[in-house]
Amino acid sequence: MADKLTNAQIAWRAAQDLPDGAYVNLGIGFPEMIAKFKPQGREVIYHTENGVLDFGEAPPAGEEDWDLINAGKKAITLNAGASFFHHADSFAMVRGGHLDVAVLGAYEVSENGDLANWSTGPGSVPAVGGAMDLVHGAKQVWVVTDHVTKKGEPKLLRQCRLPLTGVACVTTVYTSLAVIDIRGGRFVLREKLPGMSLDALQALTEATLVVESPVKDLVVPEV
């Protein structure tokens, strides 16, 4: 096994935890890949902020209907039983606690569950979209991310340095090296790559990794 998971493998791992019958919002970009890896036989209903519940795969090229898109402005199709609704209803589903899982990407996550994923600071055009709403309301808020930045610096921190998206909102982080739950303001290690020692993982993680029960192997097929 390679020394870290690809994004597709991180998405695969997160997908294995999707509860049957769940209402789920997958963030634009990386988190969207999770839908591809949903385990057979499990029913998941996807929500998108712009007002569609129960959408399916992208249509074949040339068959797009640009009035039928997701929050990433990509063309989608509908499953039987889908519905349309306006934005206030859509975000009532979000803030009102009706979603089971929301999955987002991250620049940084802190051990108390703070998330920074919308702004790299001054100098660019700020854009937040629905991220600040999504982190409050879903019963579980998952993050999928590389374990470290492109420069190799930790993304799992004691405190976020970049502007926050939300405070104490993340429940689980699926990284390229580990699966980590956030409980009681601490990173609790659930799984790690079998070839990696706890010390090596800790060296790439700024905040302390807590081990409460035996750490399982993070084993993901080639996808």
Binding site: E49, H87, A88, S90, F91, R95, V128, G130, M132
Partner: peptide, 9 residues
């Protein structure tokens, strides 16, 4: 800049 759900509400 207004978060999307806040803008709607």
């Amino acid at each position: 800049l207004v978060p999307q759900g806040t803008l709607a509400e």
